[in-house]
Simulated scan of single mutants.
Amino acid sequence: MGERKIDTEGCQGIKFRNVTPDVFSCMKQKLQAYGIETSPGDSGTLEGNGIVAHFSWDGEANLLIEIKERPLTTYCGQVSGKLRAFLRECQGY
C-alpha cells in the first residue's frame, strides 16, 4: 500500500461556484464511480484512492473541498484537476 501525505501545508481549499443541486448530485456520483466514497448530505468526507478530503456545499451554488490527505505521488493540482473535470462533465449533464 502506498504512503500517504497528511496535508498540513499543502493543498488549498478548492472552491466551486454555480454548483446546482443536480450538478452536486452528479459530482458525488462521479466521485463514487471513481472509487471515492462520499458522506451523505451537504457536507462531510470524501475518502478513497489514498485521498481524504472534507467537503461543504451551501445547498445552492457554492462547494468547498479541502484535501486533508493524499498519496505521496499525487500532487494537489492533479486532485483539483480531476475535480474540475468532474464539474465540467456534470455541468453538461
Rank of each mutant, 00 (worst) to 15 (best):
M1E: 06
M1A: 14
M1S: 10
E3H: 12
I6Y: 08
I6H: 05
D7P: 05
T8Q: 15
T8S: 14
Q12C: 07
R17G: 03
N18H: 12
V19C: 09
T20P: 13
V23P: 01
V23N: 01
V23R: 00
F24G: 00
M27C: 00
K28V: 00
Q29V: 02
Q32I: 02
A33W: 00
G35Y: 12
I36C: 06
T38W: 02
S39K: 00
G44W: 01
L46K: 02
L46V: 03
G48Y: 10
G50T: 12
V52F: 00
V52P: 00
H54C: 08
H54W: 06
F55K: 02
W57R: 06
D58F: 12
N62A: 15
L63Q: 05
L64I: 15
E66V: 15
E66R: 14
I67N: 06
K68M: 06
P71F: 13
L72T: 13
T73H: 05
T74V: 15
G77P: 02
V79G: 04
S80V: 04
A85M: 06
A85H: 01
L87P: 01
L87M: 07
E89K: 09
C90G: 01
Q91W: 05
G92R: 14
Y93R: 08
Y93D: 10
Y93K: 06
